[in-house]
Computed example of a mutant assay.
Amino acid sequence: MHPLPHKSVGFRFPSDLSLLTLRGVGLQRVDSHSYCWDNRERRDEHCLIQFCVEGEGAVVVDEMEYSVRPGEAFLVDIPGNSRYFLPQHATCWEFFYFEFSKECLPLLRSLYGHTGPVVWVGLDTPLAGQMEQLYRYGVEQGMVTQYENSRLAYELWMNLMECALAGAKEERSKVDEARAYIDQHYAQESLSLDQIAQHVGLSKYYLCKEFHRTFGTTPGKYIREVRIAKACALLLTNQDCTMEEIAHRVGYANNNYFGKVFRAEKGLPPDQYKRQSSHYDMVRTVYDRPKLGAEGAVSPESATVPAARPKRPHSGR
């Protein structure tokens, strides 16, 4: 990005044609924490794209907060259930902003459906260059006609849509990677949302939203489900393991906390779950796919596990 003057310009059209138009552009730098726009209280109607080039900002949409860092842009409908501001931990926020007429609402809602309100643009990309050129053109030369304005507005939105949809595909693969990472590291007591998000290169807020959208649950709940599923398998197939050993093997620091989580998930404590399995002479562990031996056949020792004999005979269930 080349150094540019911090200015803004608005565009007004005497025509009543229903065209998607650019209503205003600007480049602004803020360093006061009093900077805050609450879009629930605003009366001016437009859609906003705000592209961060330095520092950090924050936007809250439908009560969910997102960080906006260099190379990222957020999109909101004004008025609406959103607000944006300079967060307390940030010292400044520099950004381009582009205000559009409400005719762009279908495009904005389509983007929300694929990526949410924050889109990765990058700083040294053709789209970032297009935003800079559009700002420069608007400030230095203005728009000669409404048709020229609308053409440039549509061009920016089409390129933004293309960029966002390509990014959404890549980020969906990152959500799959996050689930695989949990499957591989569930036994680590230190496994956390921050650690998973850092591994896959997503913000934890975005990861939570996309993980829930993709799998119908949050990463935290998925970790618990995986750990308890693994614990159930150990309770059924390792009769000699103590509760403390099982707790450590599935990622819990102590068996007291493990017991609380197990009961919350399964509706009964782990020792009772274990005792229930002892009513059988044999326990067969059923996997989501056959466990194959060296020759590709189902391994009998992995499929059938003797259960502990009950201490006294029972007369059936």
Rank of each mutant, 00 (worst) to 15 (best):
S101V: 02
L107T: 14
N81E: 09
S67T: 12
E103H: 05
I49H: 04
P106V: 14
F95M: 10
W120N: 14
V119G: 07
L48P: 00
Y135H: 07
V68W: 07
W93C: 06
L86V: 08
Q141S: 14
K102L: 07
F51E: 10
E65D: 09
L134N: 06
F100G: 04
V118S: 02
I78F: 00
P70E: 06
G113C: 06
K102P: 02
R42S: 14
S110T: 13
Q88L: 14
C92I: 05
A90P: 01
C92L: 12
T91Y: 04
N81T: 05
L75G: 03
P70N: 01
E54T: 11
P87M: 10
A128W: 01
L111R: 02
H46P: 01
E41N: 15
R42D: 07
R69S: 11
D124W: 11
E103F: 10
G116F: 03
V139C: 10
T91R: 13
I78K: 10
E65R: 14
I78C: 09
E132K: 15
E41P: 08
F96W: 03
R109A: 07
R83D: 05
G122S: 12
Q50G: 12
Q141D: 12
G80W: 03
G57C: 05
C104S: 15
V61T: 06
L86K: 09
C52G: 10
Y84E: 07
R40G: 02
V60D: 08
G122P: 05
P106S: 09
E132G: 04
E140A: 12
H46Q: 08
K102Q: 11
Q141T: 15
G129P: 00
E140Q: 13
H114P: 02
D124H: 15
G71Y: 00
E54K: 14
S82K: 07
G138Y: 06
E41L: 15
Q130H: 01
T125D: 04
V53N: 06
A90F: 07
Q88T: 10
E56P: 06
R109Y: 14
E99Q: 13
L86F: 03
L123P: 05
R83F: 04
R69P: 08
D62S: 11
A90T: 01
E56K: 09
I49T: 10
R40T: 03
L111C: 03
P87K: 13
I49K: 06
P126R: 08
V76G: 05
E94V: 02
C104W: 06
L105S: 10
V121R: 01
I49F: 03
W93L: 02
L134V: 13
R43I: 14
A58M: 01
A58F: 00
D124C: 08
L105E: 13
E94T: 15
L105W: 07
